[in-house]
Design a protein around this nucleic acid. Structure first.
Lengths: 161, 161
DNA sequence: GGTCTGTGGTTGAGTGTTCAACAAGAGGGA
DNA sequence: TCCCTCTTGTTGAACACTCAACCACAGACC
């Protein structure tokens, strides 16, 4: 962090946008998480993992890959998968061709839990986000966010310590 | 949660936007939090609280008001303020005119910590978000996010249980 | 005055996340 | 083959957050 260069302060309106973004994100995530929890005993991070698994060949992904996909630390994914395994939603298997490798696999039960939960989640995203933007606005949101992702996830290519 | 009505699934492109938003938010928050922590031993939620306090008359806000401003539960704010108090960054005082009331006050030391931290934070917001949107795009982001906030925070007027 | 209900704030236990340290296999070069 | 280093995944302790229960005061109503 270079302290010799001038810090570019935010204008009042930029500040206002930033706070809206912060507030909206806090409320939105909180709400989606709460809905999933009460209806399906699943947290947002858990749900995200299930979605990735369900879309993958064999419903199975290597731990490190999974961590990269959801931008969590390897440690965090280990803990989360352990929890999901205890609930019978995923299973661990030895990855072929790499003695260190472990893959998480979505069980049939896990898949049906996900099918249910998806309704809750998608409705929430619609009602609390999509509804409030025109298609054009939504597209702008997507473009900006995509640039943010691109620039951030190969800067610190490993968010995991 | 009404299970009789049809769930409005997301189109492929909506899904893509949603994932970008999710990914960007995860990476961005993580990065800003990490930078604040390593440079100033402060978390994002802590920083947000300090900002609110610093802008308030007497650098002091009632606990419940503070909780509402940053959209956290009262319990969470209690814990956070306790932590900040232990570090000498804020102090608790009895609120006047209400026997139950407690206000958090930013200390001089707290103010100077905030002054330092603000550089780090603002630079981060600039480099990782503002830079990647044109003024028009940024304005769109603000409008959409503001609508999301409006609709979510008087739906569940108390995010606190 | 008394009770009743609602709000403000705290507490402690349970849960999830981070962080640093670790074991074990992979892959390279001498 | 023997190192050396990097990657993979796990572990346990420390830390942060959630949740439900709780006490104390405020305000209204009788």
């Amino acid at each position: 962090m270079d302290t010799t260069t001038e810090t570019p302060w935010l204008t009042e309106s930029q500040q206002h946008v930033w706070r809206s973004y912060l507030g909206a994100t806090t409320l939105l995530m909180d709400r989606l998480d709460r809905d999933l929890r009460t209806a399906h005993d699943l947290s947002m991070p858990e749900y995200e993992i299930l979605v990735r698994l369900s879309e993958s060949p064999d419903r199975s992904i290597r731990m490190a890959t999974l961590a990269a996909q959801v931008s969590h630390s390897r440690s965090r994914v280990t803990h989360t998968i352990s929890r999901l395994e205890r609930k019978g939603i995923v299973q661990r298997t030895q990855a072929v061709g790499d003695g260190r490798g472990v893959s998480a696999v979505l069980t049939d039960h896990g898949f049906s839990v996900l099918e249910q939960a998806a309704h809750t989640h998608v409705r929430g995203v619609h009602a609390h986000l999509v509804e409030h933007a025109s298609p054009e606005e939504f597209a702008v949101l997507g473009r900006v966010m995509q640039r943010v992702v691109d620039q951030l996830d190969d800067a610190g290519s490993c968010p995991a310590p």
